[in-house]
């Protein structure tokens, strides 16, 4: 028991243990609610919801009416859960960053390679996030909704997506790290 509690308090687990836990969560989603995990779709629902408040005419199209209807969907509930899961995980190891110095530019490796400027981190992160969400739309899901959820059902789409993701991730890292790769 003491061992388990101490393990929970560790900042970083073996990726095998954490991965097994995610696998069980994936099974749980199908077993308990006949659903799949996924994160990118929730942002589509939220974007549609905000969009329909701000500019209803622009967002009155097939996509935001029927394909990804706006509102607090089950997917939105899941990412709220993910948010609090991350919070609890960091709390158990005492590594919460809320309102702490350095929370605006949180990674030491990033600062070492690209410099200390927060705006640079935010611009690159923003551009990356736009690309991620658009790509998830084209692919039919992201790392959780397609790679893990599709892969566990043995959908070919998941393995195509994973292959593409690693191939271009490696090339992009080579380009942005250059001689520091």
């Amino acid at each position: 028991m003491k061992f388990i509690l101490n393990y929970i308090r560790r900042e970083e687990w073996s990726p095998y243990v954490a991965g097994a836990l995610l696998g069980l969560v994936g099974i749980g989603a199908v077993w308990a609610s006949n659903n799949l995990l996924g994160a990118s779709g929730a942002f589509e629902n939220l974007a549609g919801m905000f969009g329909k408040w701000i500019a209803p005419a622009v967002f009155d199209n097939m996509y935001f009416n029927f394909i990804m209807p706006p509102g607090i969907t089950i997917g939105v509930v899941l990412i709220i859960g993910i948010f609090f899961g991350g919070m609890i995980g960091a709390a158990t190891s005492g590594t919460l960053m809320w309102f702490k110095k350095g929370s605006a530019n949180s990674d030491a490796q990033w600062k070492r390679i690209f410099g200390p400027q927060t705006w640079k981190r935010w611009v690159l992160a923003f551009v990356g996030a736009v690309i991620l969400e658009y790509a998830a739309g084209i692919a039919g899901g992201c790392t959780s909704g397609l790679a893990i959820s599709g892969g566990m059902l043995l959908a070919p789409s998941a393995f195509l997506f994973i292959a593409g993701m690693f191939a271009s991730g490696i090339v992009t890292a080579l380009v942005i790290y250059r001689n520091r790769y």
Partner: peptide, 27 residues
Amino acid sequence: VGGLIFGVGMALSGYCPGTCAAGAGEG
């Protein structure tokens, strides 16, 4: 192609939609 574009975003930002939500929760 979606996977290929996705990898670019991952390498630039260092997250994907799920890990970003969890990292945001960490503050």
